[in-house]
Design a protein around this nucleic acid. Sequence first.
DNA 1: GTTGCAAATGAACGTCCGTTCAATAAACTT
DNA 2: AAGTTTATTGAACGGACGTTCATTTGCAAC
Lengths: 195, 195
Amino acid sequence: MARKQGSHSQTTGPKVREAALRLIARHGCAAVSMRQIAAEVGVQAGALYNYTPDKQSLLFDLMQSHMLELLEAWNLQDHSGDAMSRLQRFTQFHIQFHLTRSDQVFVSYMELRNLSAENFAKIEAMRRGYEGALEGILQAGEAEGVFDIPDTRVAAMALIAMLTGLNNWYRDDGRLTIAQIEQIYWDLVRKSVEA
Amino acid sequence: MARKQGSHSQTTGPKVREAALRLIARHGCAAVSMRQIAAEVGVQAGALYNYTPDKQSLLFDLMQSHMLELLEAWNLQDHSGDAMSRLQRFTQFHIQFHLTRSDQVFVSYMELRNLSAENFAKIEAMRRGYEGALEGILQAGEAEGVFDIPDTRVAAMALIAMLTGLNNWYRDDGRLTIAQIEQIYWDLVRKSVEA
DNA sequence: GTTGCAAATGAACGTCCGTTCAATAAACTT
DNA sequence: AAGTTTATTGAACGGACGTTCATTTGCAAC
């Protein structure tokens, strides 16, 4: 009736975040109770408070982790070469990163309104950093003369929305492979900015 | 302590839906209580049940109304002419319709997961109808030879995501007018599908 | 001016919520 | 093997939830 066999914070901690992520992605933060998360992990609700000070912090940690992962993964990419090939790599990177993290993406977009003002500002700053990376590529292409874009900021927002929207309809058992979809999206992206 | 002066179902009913829409768009369905909605209307919680059988039905009604309005408004548009001008009108229509209904759009996209299976199916069917309208234009353009699109279904989903994404960043007091934004988006849309 | 209908009240129902905490058992250290 | 630390239980807290309903009041028609 107390500590269970094989229990360790290093295994329970990740399980808590995984369960919270899955449940919040499915039903929304407000619709998921701490008791439901605990049940998914296999503990009582009180045990969750060894891993998070409260529910809001748990949500913010999930979103912040996702954004940090995104920025770090992007920084590890190859940023050399001309604007056209950089744009192609961005497109491919964005699709692959987001399609393999559908729960994180869902939570990070849907639960923004449940964050406190300061936590919201932190997430938004990271998101603007990522958007800025794409805008930088678009500006470079303008300078090279290979792109013709009336407004690089708007174009960056539009392209990211287009790419991320893929998460809303892609299904593993669908008609097309990820590679095929990547090719189709790259065609759309390339043509939309090409001079 | 009972019926209030000037109370009529024809005024209270719409106020209930407006308050529910605004609050659900801001905080999410699960995060908004019937008591909060009632307070916004200026009645007690019990009075809401003169206007909806339960909370779930209220949410579904809001979403269904939005989709019906969308399909009806689209049907009233001019559908004549060549594919290129039809696509331009679709782009303009979509932006104007969605930008002027940000709360409805927000709720209709964010609260899908809170619908029962059958209600979800109804909304999805309407959404597919709208997506099909765009895909029809793209197919027509292919037939005319003015568009070059590897997959019209994917392109339709991608373009709608791009256009609807505008709702996530547009602000009335922003740098650009709606007309300017329409022009930028139309450039992106046109170029992305042009032969 | 009475009657009948419409609209809202406010209290109540049982249930679930996030969170706290003393007690307790497992794991680790020596 | 004893002692310390770590992880969990289970009960409890006050409060909020969606929903129901007998009651009361305002309105409209005769």
